[in-house]
Amino acid sequence: MTAKKPISNPENYLKDIRRKTRRIFTAEQKILIVMEALRAETSIAELCRKHAIQESTFYKWNKEFIEAGKKQLSGDTLRQATSEEVSQLREENRKLKETVADLVIRYDIVKKSLEILE
C-alpha cells in the first residue's frame, strides 16, 4: 500500500489541481480566439467565458498578436535558427577551418620545397 500525503491546506491543494490541469493553448487556438474577438460578434467577456480563459489572458494574447503583425508588416522579423541547425552549421564551420588549415600547411610545404630547388 502507498501512503497518501496529508492535505496540509485546502487552498494549496486546489492550486495544485489547477496547476496540473491547466490547459495549454496552441498558437493556432490563440489566433482563432483573437480573430473571433476582432469580428466583434460577441463581447470580450462573453468570448472569455466561452473559451474558459481570463480576460487578462485574452488581452495579453491580443497584444502579442498585434505586435507580431506590426513586426511582420514592417519587415522587422528575423528567422530564428533551431539549435539543430546551429549545431550543424558549427560542425560545418569547424570542418571548413580544418580544411583551410590543412591547405595552408600544404601550400607552405610546396613553397619551401620549390625554394630549395631554385
Rank of each mutant, 00 (worst) to 15 (best):
F58P: 08
A27K: 05
E41T: 14
Q29R: 07
L114A: 05
L117N: 12
L78Y: 13
D16I: 02
K30A: 04
Q72L: 13
K95H: 09
K63C: 14
K71S: 13
K95N: 10
E28H: 12
L103N: 05
L114I: 02
E84K: 06
T77Q: 13
E84T: 09
Q88Y: 06
R22P: 13
E28N: 09
T42L: 09
E118N: 07
E92D: 14
D102Q: 09
E98K: 00
F58V: 01
L114F: 02
F58A: 04
L38D: 10
K112T: 05
T42D: 12
A68H: 10
S8C: 13
V104H: 00
R49C: 11
E64P: 07
T57M: 10
V34D: 02
V34L: 05
E91W: 02
T57G: 00
L47R: 01
R18P: 07
K30F: 00
K4Y: 15
A52Y: 03
E118P: 01
F25T: 13
S83N: 14
V86W: 06
S74Y: 08
Y13C: 14
T26R: 05
K4N: 15
A68D: 05
R39Y: 13
K63I: 04
T2K: 15
K20D: 07
I24M: 12
L96Y: 02
N62S: 10
S8K: 13
N12D: 15
R90P: 04
L32P: 06
V110N: 00
Q80C: 12
N93I: 14
A27I: 12
I53Y: 00
Y13F: 15
K95M: 01
V86H: 11
L117F: 04
T99P: 04
K4A: 15
M1G: 10
A3K: 01
A45H: 10
R19D: 04
I105H: 10
N9D: 05
T21E: 08
E67K: 11
Y107H: 07
I109D: 00
Q29E: 10
S83T: 14
Q88P: 01
A81D: 08
S56R: 10
R18Q: 14
A81N: 08
K63D: 05
A101W: 05
E85C: 11
T57N: 06
